[in-house]
Simulated assay, not measured.
Amino acid sequence: MAIKVYGYPTSTAVLRVVAALNEKQLDFEFVPVDMRAGAHKQQPFISLNPFGQVPALEDGDITLFESRAITKYIAYTYETQGTPLVHRDDKKQMAAESVWQEVEAHHFDPVGSKLGWELVYKVMLFGMETDMAVVEENEAKLVMVLDIYEARLAESKYLGGDSFSLADLHHLPLLNYLMETQVKKLFDERPHVSAWCKDILVRPAWEKTVAFYKHG
């Protein structure tokens, strides 16, 4: 049975999953969920994710939700296919990858998501006005996060070590959106962060993911 991904194509969580599938060179069927009509809060989708949030994934008789859990499932289940996204043969790198996956989820994503909402989603999807006070507050928080990233990336090419991994991949959807906004300068001002962004944003699997959400 084909892998099925349920979601809305511009969702950062959905794009995180699609990027992992593309890195693994896995074919999948995308099943659109009309979030504007509230389909994510209704059956049949609610049976896939009881929290009513995209994405959900079906792989045979396995159903998963929560994008980072899905990417880990993909990385381990299809470990020998496509790009290695976890490195179990190197305990030091595997440990670092786990740490930086948590950093992305608990430090980068909350700040980046607020900036993405104010600078991208409110304007692009809802025609709403950006709250610049919220932007200023979260830019200051992002500066603190990126200073830590700069120190880390001065030590290794990628967050988990010398190889691309889920720790880097999980950042891609938000980075892609933020690079089109005024906060791009915060990344550009930090040479190691800037080099890392440029590297991962031109990966063929990510470019394929961008084409997916832009053109379907």
Rank of each mutant, 00 (worst) to 15 (best):
K122T: 01
T77H: 06
A96N: 10
L115Y: 00
Q93H: 06
D90F: 08
A75R: 02
P50G: 02
E97D: 15
V103W: 07
Q53F: 00
P110C: 10
E58A: 12
W117T: 08
Q53N: 02
F108P: 06
I62Y: 05
H87W: 08
H106F: 09
Q81M: 04
E79H: 12
K72R: 14
Y121Q: 13
K91C: 12
I70K: 04
H107L: 14
T77V: 03
V111M: 04
E102Y: 01
W117I: 07
Y76F: 07
F126Y: 14
E58N: 08
Q53E: 11
A105T: 09
R68S: 11
D109C: 02
T80D: 15
V99I: 13
I70D: 08
G127W: 00
D109E: 15
L125C: 08
S98W: 01
K92W: 01
R68L: 09
R88H: 06
T80H: 15
K122H: 02
L125Y: 08
Q101M: 12
K114I: 03
H106T: 13
R88L: 11
L125S: 13
G82T: 05
G116A: 10
Y73H: 12
T83V: 06
Q81L: 04
T71E: 08
M124H: 12
Q81F: 00
H106S: 15
K114F: 00
E97P: 01
E102R: 05
S98I: 05
D89T: 13
G82I: 04
Q93F: 02
M94D: 15
W117Q: 12
V99Y: 04
G112C: 06
K114V: 05
K92A: 14
A95C: 02
V111Y: 01
M124T: 11
T83Y: 01
E58F: 03
G82K: 04
G52T: 00
W100Y: 11
L125Q: 13
M128Y: 07
V103P: 02
H106R: 12
G112L: 04
V103E: 04
V120E: 05
L64K: 07
A56T: 05
I62V: 15
D61K: 06
G116F: 02
L115N: 04
V111H: 04
A69N: 08
A69H: 00
G52H: 00
M128S: 14
L57N: 12
Y73E: 14
N49E: 03
E97R: 02
E97C: 05
V120K: 10
E118M: 06
P110Q: 12
K92S: 10
T71P: 09
K91V: 13
G82M: 07
L64H: 04
M94R: 05
K72W: 00
P84K: 13
F51Q: 06
T83L: 04
E79K: 14
R88C: 05
Q101G: 14
A69P: 02
T71N: 09
L57V: 11
V123G: 09
H87I: 01
S113Q: 10
R68D: 08
D90Q: 13
V103S: 01
M94N: 11
E118L: 03
P50N: 05
M124S: 14
V120I: 15
M94I: 00
P55S: 12
G127S: 06
V86E: 11
F108R: 08
V120C: 14
I70G: 07
L119S: 06
Y121H: 09
L64C: 12
W117Y: 06
F126L: 15
P55E: 12
E102G: 04
I74S: 10
F51P: 00
E102S: 08
G60T: 02
P50D: 01
A69T: 06
G52D: 01
T77Y: 00
